[in-house]
Design a protein around this nucleic acid. Structure first.
Lengths: 354, 354
DNA sequence: TTGAAAGCGCTAACAC
DNA sequence: GTGTTAGCGCTTTCAA
């Protein structure tokens, strides 16, 4: 395939020792300006790029210049945004990202994935699973083992049993505010659709929703938080069930969707059923994805600032990897932004007869 | 951070030579069942994972088990699907993917990116830039250099000056058919929106559109293929211009959008202007993304089978990397699927008075 | 300031 | 079968 060039080839051509070439490459030790120039000229002319594997072999220094990104498959825009921002930030700092996808709808061994990360001696790992993964019992063990080899930052609410840095959105409170927002517009029958069944007690969204229902004294019917899923299709189905399971007086006047994607499906189904949004049913999504402003009507939603978190995570990771002594982990909580558009019906004002 | 384990540690504990541990690890040479078991037990117990960098250093054999993926930032669903499928397929075959994003809306040096790939001695590279990148004059040089170091497969129409394997959708013909489809429904004034300005002559979509306009004798006004872009917003703007630049009798009765995303924006703007789709204006998108079936009305679009291409590409790459002699490159052309939903107005039948 | 040489962790000839 | 040993390409003491 290709004749591999080494520092020896460069050294020979420049008439210097390999170590001198190495010094020019790393820029660490002192080399006379003249030699440096001469060697650099040959490196440039030959398009020589040092073998990273060889450099990485050196002891004590993690220098693979690679950050592992562990996240669910990038089929949704939320993960895409994080991956994109993380890769961009990493590149800006001279690093690349190695993507470890957690297959959706297929079982996998998180331990095996962690082995891969370790095997590659990465400089750090970014975990972004969020609520989706909370349920896995084997996650803490695997991530803790990973942490013995490299710094780990999670873009996720804190996970019990894992002692890494967490970049966390206080979604619970924001969801609470969203329900409260609907409450103030007059809604007393607000349903929550989407999400994982197993997540109902643990997920931040569900927590916020359930707390609001309790504290605001809203109608609490099992159907109002019964059905799960993460796709547009699951949004369709959820709405279908929601309106077929409930009797006339108990139909929800507002819907809180797990994500904008779920809301998208819900919107479609409501349209099919001839219900107007927000006049008949108000709806609020979550994620502020690229299509949120383009639905009919434009979706009121929550912006998680995922790009910003991704950048913070990468920076933190790279800083940690340079420290000799591990930095203590911390949890950073930030409030997401509640973005009011038209689907929640603010322009309709407070209504009494819902 | 962590006490790194080596095969020597395992060897010592097992009371065998390091090479025996290596043999167990690779499974290449013969080891007695008894020793193999003993060694394996220790490897398992200690969770030992061999350093990939060291393995990769070996010449001729055992590469990095990593495929580089070069593509625009994964902000759209098209790239996301390719990345996702490629990573999944790679993993299935024991490989990981290293993502090299081409920043959107920011200048970058493709040569530098290629250097990174080479430096990392990857087993292969998947390039998926498509029409977006055709314009760059430095691309062929960079990719050709890359090909001296590793096999390259491009999910893209063939690019002049690059002699790699191309997995190509005959989008041109499909777009032609789409325009023809509109023609048969009665449309004579079909506009094309989105895409890059520089792409107008080279891009497959534009080619197909222009050929259809010519061959079918459709109305050809500069405004009908004037404005570009790849975002939903650019779709909005394009429609706005399209309808403000043309006089009453010259308003298009149909719109072909560069992508579903562009179509999404167009849909929004048409709605704002009080135009009905497909009654007043028919519209066809491209990509068959997850939201295509959820727009109002559901979008008629084109499915590029990107996941399938991604899997093919990865397989081809891995096969090539195992060959000692390079396989001759080829170009595989596949017809995309034309997916008819409601936005093109088929259910309205053929109309004469458009 | 530069060169020689000893590894880094692993694999693969080559002995035994 | 299993151990010994020489690299893979690079960095980094340690001399000179």
């Amino acid at each position: 395939m290709a004749e591999k060039m080494t520092i020896y080839d460069i050294a020979r051509e420049a008439g210097v020792a390999p170590s001198t070439v190495s010094r020019v490459l790393t820029g660490h030790s002192n080399v006379s300006a003249k030699t440096r120039e001469k060697v650099q000229a040959i490196i440039d002319r030959r398009h020589f790029t040092p073998n990273l594997a060889a450099q990485a072999l050196e002891q004590n220094k993690q220098r693979t210049k690679t950050i592992g990104v562990i996240m669910p498959e990038v089929t949704d825009h939320y993960s895409g945004k994080i991956l994109c921002a993380a890769t961009r930030e990493a590149r800006r700092l001279g690093y690349e990202t190695l993507l470890f996808q957690l297959p959706i709808g297929e079982k996998y061994d998180i331990g095996e994935i962690v082995d891969q990360l370790i095997r590659r001696r990465l400089d750090g790992a970014l975990y972004s699973g969020g609520v989706l993964e909370v349920v896995r019992a084997d996650l803490p063990g695997a991530l803790n083992r990973l942490m013995e080899y490299m710094p780990l930052v999670a873009i996720s609410p804190p996970i019990a049993g894992i002692n890494c840095t967490f970049l966390h959105n206080d979604l619970e409170t924001t969801i609470y505010h969203a329900v409260q927002h609907l409450y103030m517009l007059g809604h007393r029958r607000t349903a929550f659709i989407g999400g994982a069944r197993t997540m109902r007690d643990s997920g931040a969204r569900a927590c916020g929703y359930l707390r609001a229902v309790r504290e605001l004294g809203l109608t609490d019917i099992p159907s109002y938080h019964g059905e799960g899923g993460f796709t547009a299709e699951s949004g369709e189905i959820a709405v279908l069930r929601l309106f077929s399971e409930t009797s006339a007086g108990h139909r929800p006047s507002a819907i809180l969707a797990f994500s904008d994607l779920v809301a998208l499906g819900a919107l479609k189904q409501l349209h099919v059923m001839g219900l107007q949004v927000p006049e008949d049913v108000a709806i609020i999504g979550c994620d502020n994805t690229f299509f949120s402003a383009y639905t009919l009507p434009p979706l009121t939603t929550i912006d998680l600032y995922s790009e910003e978190r991704a950048r913070t995570a990468v920076n933190e990771l790279i800083n940690c990897s340079k420290e000799s002594t591990p930095k203590p982990p911390f949890t950073l909580v930030r409030a997401p932004a509640f973005i009011v558009r038209e689907s929640c019906g603010v322009m309709l004002g407070r209504r009494e007869n819902l």
